[in-house]
Amino acid sequence: MKTWIAFWNILLKDICSYYLKPPNISWGLLFPLVWITMFFIRSGMGMDKLPDLLPGLVALSILFGTTSVLSVTVTFEKKGRSFERLLLAPISLEILMLAKTSGAILFGTINALVPIFVAMFLTDLSAINWYVLVPAIVLIAVSSTFLGLFIAVSVKEVFEAQTFSNFFRFPMIFLCGLFFPITSLPIFLRPLSYALPLTYGTDILRGSMTGSNVMPFALDFLVLSGFCAVLFYISLRNINKKWIT
């Protein structure tokens, strides 16, 4: 019970202090919307093509929603020393970091719903398999968040966190099949695609929305869960090693 009071309040403070601040909301929401508009203008596609674009947009919204705030907040609190206060609290590092990341996961999940909500008014979404889509969105949010955490604990400065996370984010837009199928990538880049969690996430999104997944759902979910576990474990180990010196 005591642990959950701490967990909930850490999450609540992060939501109020960081996630509900205008710059974060706009960065998380606006960016994917600008991207979609640009796409339509550039390609001259009609609204009937929206379902094909939607998986990529959802993936993009999650990726930016989760990573833009988290990598900054953790690094920021570490620099301002208030993170020490959390390390001094009688809660395990696992629970602490889950609390610190839950805000990002929640934010990413809500972010994912924005393009879907907009699309509802523009096109027919009756073909969507929600039982697959919803868990997939959550799992992608978790894996992107943990990737953000991994980045945040690998650097010292806030600006490094931003740079480093862009170093991951932008290539992922192209490498993970968000808007072009992986098969259209040069052959030497493909192994890289399969080393990134978002590739599997996008595949589930695509499958659940248009039925065009490349790999079986079970495999996608399994690999994605594996990424979550490994990224979280490495991040915790890094925190243990670097922050408790």
Binding site: M1, K2, T3, I5, A6, W8, N9, I10, K13, R85, L86, A89, P90, I91
Partner: peptide, 10 residues
């Protein structure tokens, strides 16, 4: 209040 919550105080 936040610091108190870290120790599980209601």
């Amino acid at each position: 209040c936040f610091c108190a919550s870290l120790y599980g105080i209601r």
